[in-house]
Design a protein around this nucleic acid. Structure first.
Lengths: 231, 231
DNA sequence: CGGTGCGTTGACATTTCTCAACTGTTGTGG
DNA sequence: CCACAACAGTTGAGAAATGTCAACGCACCG
């Protein structure tokens, strides 16, 4: 079981929440955590359920979504290895406000349960770290809102692509889409067809080269202009 | 000057951040705060400036916005009495990521400066309160994102109207728009003309009655259907 | 009383969605 | 390991929604 515990440590250590925490305190956090494995399609929690833990993705991926009255789903977040979710539910609400489902078989999560809240109350260093981390996430959400507030689809897409972590190839950038294109479309609040056509158009114009989830950004200057035009 | 201090107390006391704080600790928070008055058009802080304080609106209103390369403004937030802003800048970033400007003459703010961060480090009760408060705000932002992810303009608007605090009149609801219509349009990421036409159409159909910023929602059932159709 | 900016309305251009058909890819059970 | 089902992605055509531009009324402020 030591091995499992090491995996938990590694996962938690990488989390912004625990940056700069001394080892002794960090170990007390680790005690609140356990590993859980889910199969594709398993529900991690349901809307309305009592929030007993927040989660960190160790492997696989997770979709957090809201079920709408007419049965469709609205995606709230997509989470992949290294990302955490449901902190607000545990730290404040007490109930999960949304549903979460595992998207891949062998999706492994680290669950940090409510003993963590107790620890938070005793350890200012920890709660200051969490305050800082939540603040960063707030800023991230504000950016996301700004992105969605951009009215034109090309501007939203260009904006998104340019913010993606990029590798430098000679004279241009290479980015990997972290989402399936249909999910990216949903993220940008556009129809999948529109996304497909935009990429096609840009490829025809020589702005990008598109091969599956790999995109080469050939002319960032024009892409920047497109992103700025409507924001 | 005792009077000023009372006003600060009152403003801070109403903030979710300090709910449930005992008096002694609350007083130590008050010490970190001072009141500042701005005229219409005064800059409260600039993008990139060192974040020395976060603010609570006591009177008047504030616009937080990002300046875009082409000189236009993108509104991030509108703040009115009782609301606070710029916490993340102080608690984590160290610099303001956006600009803030006073919109009315005699806009009065309470500035809570960085001594507060020191206090946070010493007082777990305080930092737990802040964690909870930030969590709630995170949830609010997620809702906002969900709202913006709704693709159709009528659905976004209906959704927005139905969430507004409403007074019950006989057989229908009365709501007050807290924003100028052009700002509401920007908030919903639609053109002001579209907003105007939607309200007009709904009025013609007998769904609402519109008089300036006061709206009577005459048929919430249909409005709900409109809000749900696209979300 | 004149100016400035908000809100409305109309006409029009454009974008984006919807629907439908087709292709390619992936994963699964036989 | 293959065949096939299920799903992701692409493309086209047409409809619908929304933005843009321009003109005008109106209220508020100096």
């Amino acid at each position: 079981m030591q091995r499992m515990s090491d995996a938990i440590r590694e996962t938690l250590r990488a989390l912004p929440h625990f940056h700069g925490l001394d080892l002794e305190l960090f170990e007390r956090v680790v005690v609140c955590a356990e590993s859980r494995t889910f199969a594709r399609g398993d529900m991690i929690f349901l809307h309305g359920e009592e929030a007993r833990a927040f989660f960190v993705v160790r492997a696989g991926s997770v979709r957090v979504y809201r079920a709408t009255p007419d049965g469709r789903e609205q995606v709230v977040h997509h989470l992949r290895a290294g990302q955490s979710f449901a902190e607000p539910a545990v730290l404040s609400l007490g109930r999960y406000p949304v549903n979460a489902i595992a998207l891949e078989s062998r999706t492994e999560l680290v669950a940090v349960d409510s003993r963590f809240v107790e620890l938070l109350k005793q350890e200012p260093r920890l709660s200051v770290a969490i305050v800082s981390s939540l603040s960063m996430r707030l800023l991230g959400l504000v950016e996301r809102i700004e992105e969605l507030a951009i009215t034109s689809a090309p501007a939203r897409l260009a904006h998104y692509l340019l913010k993606l972590p990029a590798k430098d190839a000679d004279r241009h950038l290479v980015v990997q889409l972290p989402l399936a294109k249909k999910d990216l479309a949903s993220h940008l609040a556009i129809a999948p067809e529109t996304l497909s056509r935009l990429l096609r158009r840009w490829q025809d114009r020589g702005l990008i080269r598109s091969k599956g989830k790999t995109l080469e950004l050939l002319d960032t200057r024009i892409l920047l202009a497109i992103a700025d035009r409507d924001e």
